[in-house]
Design a binder for these strands. Sequence first.
DNA 1: AAGTCGGGGTG
DNA 2: CACCCAGACTT
Length: 220
Amino acid sequence: MTSTRRVFVERLLDWYHENGRHALPWREDSRTAFEILVAEVLLQRTTASAVEGAYVSFVARYPTPACLVAAPSDRLVDAIEPLGLTKRAGHLERCSAQLWERYAGRVPAERTALLSLHGVGEYTARSVLIHAFGEHTVAVDTNVRRLVSRFFGIDPHSDALGETADALAPEGRSGDFLHAMLDFAASVCRAREPRCDSCPLRTRCRRFESGRASRIERSQ
DNA sequence: AAGTCGGGGTG
DNA sequence: CACCCAGACTT
């Protein structure tokens, strides 16, 4: 682990301790694997603040795959409608049926088994492994992709990005680390107008340094 | 590999 | 008002 990588991880975890969105309902320790899986599906391309408004009542009403399969499809669509991408109602329905048929209603703890579920892709599978089963890995979403590509100066679409991100996860703290990257990228390393002036990583950030160089260039 | 889904928040 | 959001499925 290089010095820059160590600084990235440590400053990110420090920032997260002080500024993380620790109260998000799906981060509660008591959540079941199924409740975590439901959260990950609802969060696909959807802001955490939007999911906050629908999540608690949703998992209270459909706490298990059997409950969800038994629900009228219309009710599932109604619950997801304010989040957009309402096809996820059907995804959850099929996913729950598959959980019941193949895994006795339990969420499997293997990546390939998770990927076989409808509506579960690479990100969602890894996120469930991390948060429900404590696996030591990283899940790359739009936030992680943006943060890692900017800081390390890596092409966002290259294979190197995922490998770089995976090597960063601190042993035994994969969950906190992923949450730290998500929260940090959502509020500091934002897609539009990142807050570099107050960023604790800026002294080592490739994007900030290159931006500083070009600003000096213009001022002379 | 590209297209599509989507309501809601934000700069 | 254009852009973006804890992506995955279909074509």
